[in-house]
Write a protein that binds this DNA or RNA. Sequence first.
DNA 1: AAGTTGATGCAATTGAGTTGCAAAGTTGTT
DNA 2: AACAACTTTGCAACTCAATTGCATCAACTT
Lengths: 136, 136
Amino acid sequence: MNENINNKLNAKSIKPTAMRQLVLHVLAEQKSAVSMQELEQKFEKADKVTLYRTLKTFEEKKLIHSIDDGTGSIKYALCRESCQCRPEELHVHFYCTECKQTYCLNDIPIPSVNLPVHFTLENINMVVKGICANCI
Amino acid sequence: MNENINNKLNAKSIKPTAMRQLVLHVLAEQKSAVSMQELEQKFEKADKVTLYRTLKTFEEKKLIHSIDDGTGSIKYALCRESCQCRPEELHVHFYCTECKQTYCLNDIPIPSVNLPVHFTLENINMVVKGICANCI
DNA sequence: AAGTTGATGCAATTGAGTTGCAAAGTTGTT
DNA sequence: AACAACTTTGCAACTCAATTGCATCAACTT
Ligand SMILES: [Mn+2]
Ligand SMILES: [Mn+2]
Ligand SMILES: [Zn+2]
Ligand SMILES: [Zn+2]
């Protein structure tokens, strides 16, 4: 695989096995977030569990983030280069009810909320549902 | 059951069966949102499926709303009196990672987001995770 | 080479949600 | 009251994504 792929894996201290290179390669060419099942179908022979554990590893190492878009299957997408997945750097996600795609709105940060007193924030998930520009 | 319970059911044109009165009664005394499983355990003899369908009916009639807090089980909470569940009137939800409770922050409306051009909005889900005031 | 650690593949399990269908209950009509 | 039409309920069975257990394989370490 690409040299670039290995660099990304190394940068997040993930051992670059064949499987991981392959999965990262496929993830990198997606325009929308993908589920494990969708990902599985993009490979000739792919074990669901290995894929599952690969994604877990990627997520732990903050190479990808997972998106619970409310459809029942978790979607995954690459994090931006320097992302630490801290609450301040999270972005809004969009689920199109027409094309059933989940998009990272990387340029739209999650607006801050004023929580009630003594509530502390660790994480936020914000998913907007509607029709995307391609489906108008 | 209470006369109030029947009023609420009638107001949303839900036929007040014994089961529905009971479920609404239990829902009304909750301080946080509950899952189907939690609800099931609050009754002596309760059929999961009947409960499931009762909640579906309640949700369709906008007596309750469901919350996908990312834990894997949907939570349910009463809607406010005049709620139509329109995007403008949605509120933020809070999941406490300590007590594992999901709270409706009824007084905190979901902030508006500026979507990219030609994206239209139908619905928003916003869940904040952290520690609640009781668990500090 | 043997030992240790991590990665992979297959089978099986979990658990929330959902469907099918028949029985029981309700309502309205003759 | 008897009947039909419709709604609600209960049980069993099923779906589907996610997860675990365990044996095998690969990559380093001594
Ligand atoms: Mn994203
Ligand atoms: Mn709520
Ligand atoms: Zn679309
Ligand atoms: Zn708490």
